[in-house]
Design a protein around this nucleic acid. Sequence first.
DNA 1: GCAATAGTGTCTCTAAGACAGTATTTC
DNA 2: GAAATACTGTCTTAGAGACACTATTGC
Lengths: 222, 222
Amino acid sequence: MTVDVVVLTVRAGELCALVVRRGEAPYKGRWALPGGIVADGEDLVDAARRELVEETSVSPASVRLEQLATYGAPGRDPRRRTVSVAWLAVLPRPAVPEGGTHRARATWRPTEWLLGRGRLAFDHRTILRDGVERARAKLEYTNIATAFLEPEFTIAQLRAVYEVVWGHPLDAGNFHRKVTKTDGFVSPTGRRQSAGRGRPAELFTVGTEESLYPPLTRRSLA
Amino acid sequence: MTVDVVVLTVRAGELCALVVRRGEAPYKGRWALPGGIVADGEDLVDAARRELVEETSVSPASVRLEQLATYGAPGRDPRRRTVSVAWLAVLPRPAVPEGGTHRARATWRPTEWLLGRGRLAFDHRTILRDGVERARAKLEYTNIATAFLEPEFTIAQLRAVYEVVWGHPLDAGNFHRKVTKTDGFVSPTGRRQSAGRGRPAELFTVGTEESLYPPLTRRSLA
DNA sequence: GCAATAGTGTCTCTAAGACAGTATTTC
DNA sequence: GAAATACTGTCTTAGAGACACTATTGC
C-alpha cells in the first residue's frame, strides 16, 4: 500500500509538477512522483502529507490534499504487486525552494515535458495526466486556482493561473467581472499592488465561497 | 486490500442500492455494500466486477464500473487495518432479480433509508453517500442516466431517472428539447412505445456522445 | 504626451426556464 | 367527446463572449 502525490505549481508561466529522479532500477534515470509506503495505522491522507513534507518543506497544515484515484494494475511495479493511492496537491510558487530535507532531491519539471514519452517511471504518466486533468476540471467550478497563489493576489495573477493550466488565453475583462461579481468568491482587501507600469491592481484574498456557479468554462476558446 | 461496490438502480420511483445483511460481528444485522478481498494478481476493477457478478447475475461485460475513491482510515474495520477501493455501478432495474449465485442474499434498499443513522456497517454510509453524490453530479454532464434504463427507452423514462436521482421534478418540455437537441446524445429508433393512454413516445437508444454540453443543471428548481 | 496594465460598459447571442399550445393516443 | 401523455413554440431572462471604452500608473 503506497501513496503518490501529484504536486502542481506554476513556475515561469508553465504548469510544473514535483518529481524525483530515480537512482536505481527499475526505471533508473526516469522521474517519479513523490511517494512512499503507508505506515501501519497511518491514515492515507497523512501518508500523502508526510511524503509531501519530506520532499518539499511545506508546512503540513497549509496544504489541501485531494484524493485522485487508486492505481493497482498487476505489473505496474515490476518488483511486486503494489496498489497506490494518488493525491493531488497545489502549491504557490515560492513556497517550495528546490529540495527538501529528504535524501532524494525533488525538483520541478513542466508537466508537458513530463507527459512526453519515456520520461516518467511506472504508471506515473497516467497518474500525472489524471492529476493535471483534475486540476483543469476543478478550475471551472472551484477556487482551486487560488491555491497556486500567495494569500493575496491580483485578478491578473489569478487569470494567469487559468491561462497556464488551461493553456489558452482568457478575455481579461470578462474574467475580471466573472470572478469579482461571483458572490464571496474573492474578497477585496482594499489595498493595491503596483507592479511596474500600468494601473496598480487591487489585491484580493480567497472568499468564503469555494465553488463558482455558474462555472467558468474552458470550452470557449479551446 | 478490498473492494466495495455501490450498485445503484431505480426501483418503484426510488433510488436504491444493492446491500447484503451482515450475519456476524462486527456490525451484525446491519447492511453492507457488496465487496470483498482483491485476489493476488487481480486488477482492482476486475475484483469489483467479480464481486458485483457474485451478488447479482449481471453479465460482466455489460456493466460500467467507475472508481469512486479509496477509504483507508485506521479503524474503519475494527478487526484489522483494511484499505478499500470503492466503485460505482449503475444497473437497469429488471436486470437484477433478487439474489445472485452467492451465499449471502443481496437485496435492494432505498438509498435514502440506508443513509439514515445506524443502517450501514463500517464506513459504508460515507461510501454510499459519495456514490450517490457522484451519480447525481454525473447526471449533469454525462449520459450515465441511460445506464439506469434498458437499451431502448423513452425520453419520459430518461427524465424519470433524473427526477428520482435528483429528487425533484423537471420540466418535461424543456428536458425533452435539451436531450434530443444535444447532438448525438440520444438517437431515435423510429419506433414508438405505447404505454397505456396518451400519445406513444418515441424510443431512443444511447447516442455516440457521452457528454452533455452545456450540462443539465440540478440547481434550477432545487 | 505615450505605453502599459486595470477595470467597466455595452452589444450580441446562446440557452435555460416558464408555460402555452399542438399531436396522438385510450377510454 | 375528455383525459392523458408526448412533444413543440415562444417569450423572458441570465450570462458568456467580443470588444470598445475609461482609469491610473510609469516613462
